[in-house]
């Protein structure tokens, strides 16, 4: 009985957060699901229920291209960001003498506006930008290169920079947790440095790598700012299409269906990735 009273206290502490999240997350998503089953008629919605919007989302080739491109760009961004961050995190965890200094130095660039960090790449990659004017001064080119900006490449570079901290920190934490005596044992038993890394360090740091990959993949798939600023027509992503349905053409049911499909797609891919990465890490061990 006393336990019940204690439990009630615990549920009481949990309740406010659940109420807020129910109100701000569950109810809006439910409404979005309902809206996606309607069709737009004038400024309101039609009476009946329909799967037309989902038909359009899955059926139109131009939409499929945008989904595919968003996932492809995000996957490349995730891969590049994690691959670049891993050696950096490894250095801080195992070789840096002043870890704290390095951790602060690595996070300072992220303490300014996300919008302006993205915009900075427009300045760097632009027609009169840092790279073009630098190359021209060195007489390596006589015309500015137009291929740097407004394409998927620019989106990948910009996002890999913008989300770097989300890769470095989780990987660093998981490397830092590794019991150093395991590494000594591997060396004592005759493993080479490479073999030791592949059999001990890498598998044990996988939780950090997986965490980083999910933390980067989910938000970058739905990113709106970066494709808008540096993507150009060839770098447009799914969020741009969704935004237009709400602010531009005003087709809320279609926008809702696009949102839910992209959400589901991201969840399925992230889930599959986590499961297979875990299985792979186990297989190595």
């Amino acid at each position: 009985m006393a336990d019940n009273g204690r439990n009630a206290e615990g549920y009481g502490l949990l309740a406010p957060t659940l109420v807020v999240m129910g109100l701000a997350l569950a109810a809006p998503l439910a409404l979005m699901a309902i809206t996606s089953l309607k069709d737009q008629s004038g400024i309101g919605f039609g009476q009946g229920w329909t799967l037309d919007e989902y038909g359009a989302v899955l059926g139109r080739a131009s939409y499929r291209l945008l989904f595919l491109r968003s996932v492809a760009i995000s996957a490349v961004v995730t891969l590049v960001t994690v691959a670049l961050a891993y050696p950096m995190a490894y250095f801080v965890a195992f070789h840096a003498r002043r870890k704290f200094f390095w951790l602060v130095a690595l996070t300072i660039p992220f303490w300014t506006s996300y919008l302006l960090r993205v915009f900075a790449w427009k300045i760097i990659l632009g027609f009169n930008g840092v790279i073009n004017s630098g190359l021209m001064r060195l007489h390596l080119i006589d015309q500015p290169l137009g291929v740097l900006l407004y394409n998927p490449f620019a989106v990948v570079v910009t996002l890999a920079h913008a989300w770097a901290a989300f890769a470095i920190l989780p990987i660093y934490v998981s490397l830092e947790k590794i019991d150093r005596s395991l590494l000594e044992a591997a060396s004592d038993l005759g493993d080479s440095a490479l073999r030791r890394f592949l059999r001990i360090t890498l598998p044990l740091s996988m939780p950090g790598v997986i965490g980083a990959a999910v933390l980067i993949f989910v938000p970058t798939t739905g990113d709106f700012v970066t494709p808008s600023l540096v993507g150009g027509p060839a770098g447009t992503m799914i969020a741009n299409l969704i935004e237009v349905q709400f602010n531009g053409v005003g087709n809320w049911p279609l926008g809702a269906a696009l949102s839910l499909v992209s959400m589901a797609m991201v969840a399925v891919i992230a889930g599959l990735f986590v499961a297979s990465a875990r299985a792979a890490a186990k297989a190595v061990r």
């Binding site: 109810a27 998503l29 989910v218 991201v266």
Partner: peptide, 14 residues
Amino acid sequence: FIPDIVLGLSLLML
């Protein structure tokens, strides 16, 4: 695990 654009838009609809 949900893109920000979906969070914002679903609240806008509510």
